[in-house]
Design a protein around this nucleic acid. Structure first.
Lengths: 116, 116
DNA sequence: CGTGTAAGGAATTCTGACACG
DNA sequence: CGTGTAAGGAATTCTGACACG
């Protein structure tokens, strides 16, 4: 997981997870940036892989975070994983990063034997 | 037809992972116990989902652990995950149990705020 | 530009059959 | 009983097209 936030960042208030990552890209821009096609993006959403924001009018707004997630989806699909599998994997990976964060915090007080 | 073996007889010596779990079931017995069919078991192996022991003559020997893993595989396949996805998921789940074990050990010295 | 749904080609998963030890 | 491989039906994934706001 790489964070490429150069400028344009949120050094405003919260330093950790940024809920400031509002959706800004339309479906057509997202399709162009990702190479994934609008219909496919809608399909991913119906399958529970993505959940972009919506404007009051119902238009999808994809965030930077959504784009990163989409990159991972594309990776897995190219690997040959079907959409149901991708959904499970993303869930597991989300859990994993939570677990790793917990370990990092616990290690703060007592440095462990550096697993892995 | 699912067999709910609630026996859970593993009170031998080591309480955690038992490397004593030698392969004992032939492919036909494993097929019968799991309802998975011999050709499918071989396919799972080629796809990297299972890696049963082999006798000197090359005959597969499935362990209790393999059976448990197979149950999980069946679960995921029935859920609609394809075999490539199942492989990735099993890898992630193996990593997860390692991470959880690490957390459990770290928590021994300093009890955390009960995550999850 | 956005929304959604129904049709069809390409690829995948799995089984039953074959040949052999 | 075990080993392996090639053939074919069923289901899935994705795209281009349609109709509409």
């Amino acid at each position: 997981m790489r964070t490429h936030t150069h400028e344009r960042t949120n050094r405003s208030s919260s330093p950790t997870a940024a809920p400031v990552d509002r959706g800004v890209y339309s479906i057509s821009v997202t399709a162009e940036l990702s190479g994934v096609g609008p219909q496919t993006l809608r399909l991913y959403e119906r399958r529970g892989l993505l959940d972009p924001d919506r404007t009051g009018g119902g238009t999808r707004r994809y965030s930077r975070d959504d784009l990163e997630r989409l990159r991972r989806i594309t990776e897995l699909v190219e690997l040959g994983v079907n959409l149901t599998g991708v959904r499970e994997i993303l869930t597991l990976e989300d859990q994993q990063s939570a677990l790793r964060a917990e370990i990092a915090q616990l290690s703060h007080s007592s440095p462990g034997p550096s697993g892995r």
